[in-house]
Each structure stands twice: as C-alpha cells, then as structure tokens.
C-alpha cells in the first residue's frame, strides 16, 4: 500500500539541512512496521514528511500510497486517502472540542469523496462508542482540544481520533514518549484492537518498550537519515540490549 523510494527531505528554507538521505521502505496491507533510531536520526521527520507537514521539503524520491504519488498533496488530502499521524506533541487548541473537530474532519472527508455527511445523531452515537472504547474520560472530550490534558490524556485522545477516523495507514510518531507504563498499555491496546488485514501501522519509537506491547512484523533501524538495517521483531530486542552505538559508529565512518 505504501512505497517509499530514495526519499530525501530538508527543512524548508534552510540550506544544507537535509535530514532524510534516501529512505527506501515498503509497507504491505495489514503490516506493522516499527522504525527505531537514536535522537536526531530523522525518524520523526519521516513520519511528518509522510503526512505532508509544510515545514519540510522533499528534494528527491517518491512516496506512493495505493498506487498514487502523494507528495504533491496537502495534509488533508492525504488524510482523506486514509493516512493518519498520531503526534508526539499534539497541539493544544483552546475553544475547539474534540467532538466538533472530528465531525468537521469526517465532513471534509465525505465532501472530498462526494459522499453524504454523517448526520449529527449518527456521529454522536459513533463518537460516544469510541469514547467508551478508548476509555477516555467523557468530561475531558467536552473540554478544549488537548488544553490542560496530561501527557497520557493527550495520547489517549490521539487514539480516540484514530478510532473515529479509521485510517488505512496510521503513523505513530513517538507516541510512547513521556508515557508511564499504564498509558503505554492504553496506546498499545488501541493499536492492537485496530490491527486488521486492511490496516497498516508505522510505529516510530526511540525505545523498545512500546514493542513489548505491539509486536511489529518488521523493524527498521534509522540512523542519520537512512535505514541501516531491517529485520524481524528480534531486532528491537537487540537494540534494547546493545543500543545504537554500533550503527552510529558505522554511519559516522561512512559520512
């Protein structure tokens, strides 16, 4: 469903700021890929570039999603095609309630596909079900989006959005950072309950611990903007034991 070829990306308007230096990655339907790497390796950049964050500029390569090149598409157009990014630091948006903004998101998607918008009643029912499923405090979702939410509540709210929007490719950008074990389990449960033969995940993480709860099909090690090794779930355990030192040394020697 997703094919990344020789992807290079830089920070917009900053010279010599290349972060991604030729990423190659293929994700099939129903697979869970973990992307691991040390700080500054470009793993978060990759997640954001895939979603179309305007802070980055793709300088070479291609990203094909369901047979269509998506690099020219805006973030909302990628979302309409089934992509989703769970943020490391979700924005706090005063005055905007999760209910209201998710309805707007689904409405925009329906509009882009020429479909009818979901009625307020049907959406309310769906929303309430998902709130219960995710185990998010119902009073919280009546508040402003992420405003005054704890780290765990923000991540849980990201899972709520994932449940409501039902994307075909969900990218989790270091969703585990700053979470205690309980919150980590919630995120993992969210992902696991949504795993299906039709849905793929890219889980970006620094630590192996999230992968104790989400078993990936494929693990990639990203160092200095390149995938330096790809393997099975065992690779994550290896990294947990040995760290990224050997990869960094190798990348340094090549540089």
């Amino acid at each position: 469903m997703l094919e990344i070829n020789n992807l290079h990306a830089s920070v917009v308007d900053i010279e010599n700021s290349e972060i991604l230096k030729g990423i190659n990655l293929k994700v099939n339907k129903g697979e869970v890929h973990a992307i691991m790497g040390p700080n500054g390796s470009g793993k978060s950049t990759l997640a954001n570039v895939l979603m179309g964050r305007p802070d980055y500029e793709v300088t070479a390569g291609s990203v094909v999603f369901y047979g269509e090149s998506i690099l020219g598409l805006r973030a909302e157009e990628r979302a309409h095609r089934g992509m989703f990014l769970a943020f490391q630091y979700p924005a706090e948006i005063p005055g905007v309630r999760p209910w209201q903004f998710l309805k707007a998101a689904l409405d925009s998607k329906a509009e882009s596909r020429g479909e009818d918008k979901m009625s307020v009643r049907a959406f309310s029912k769906l929303f309430d079900e998902k709130v219960e499923a995710v185990g998010i405090n119902p009073t919280l979702v009546k508040r402003s989006l992420n405003e005054g939410f704890s780290g765990g509540e923000k991540k849980r709210n990201e899972m709520l959005q994932l449940e409501v929007l039902q994307p075909s490719l969900a990218i989790l950008d270091e969703t585990d950072s700053g979470l205690d074990v309980d919150a980590l389990r919630i995120v993992a449960e969210g992902v696991n309950s949504m795993r299906s033969p039709e849905r793929s995940f890219i889980v970006v993480t620094h630590y192996q611990r999230l992968l104790n709860y989400i078993t990936p099909d494929v693990v990639h090690i990203l160092v200095k903007g390149k995938i330096v090794r790809t393997g099975g779930p065992d690779l994550a355990l290896e990294v947990e034991k040995d760290g990224y030192k050997e990869y960094l040394a190798a990348a340094g020697a090549n540089a």
């Binding site: 979603m51 179309g52 964050r53 305007p54 802070d55 805006r74 973030a75 909302e76 990628r78 979302a79 309409h80 989703f84 990014l85 943020f87 979700p90 924005a91 948006i93 005063p94 005055g95 905007v96 209201q100 903004f101 998710l102 707007a104 998101a105 689904l106 409405d107 925009s108 998607k109 509009e111 882009s112 402003s144 989006l145 959005q161 929007l165």
Partner: peptide, 29 residues
C-alpha cells in the same frame, strides 16, 4: 501558527474549515 493548522489538516479538515474552526475556537470562551 502552522503547527496548529497542520494538526487539524492532518485529520482531514480542509484548510479553510480548519482556519474557521480555529478562529471560532478563540471566540468560543
């Protein structure tokens, strides 16, 4: 800012709708 706008757009909210939601959100209180 751009981050806030991108957050809404990444969920599929069109740029114009996202801007309107954000301005309305400011007034809401």
């Amino acid at each position: 800012d751009r981050d806030t706008l991108f957050y809404l757009q990444s969920r599929g909210v069109s740029e114009d709708a996202a801007k309107a939601i954000l301005v309305r959100g400011f007034a809401e209180e």
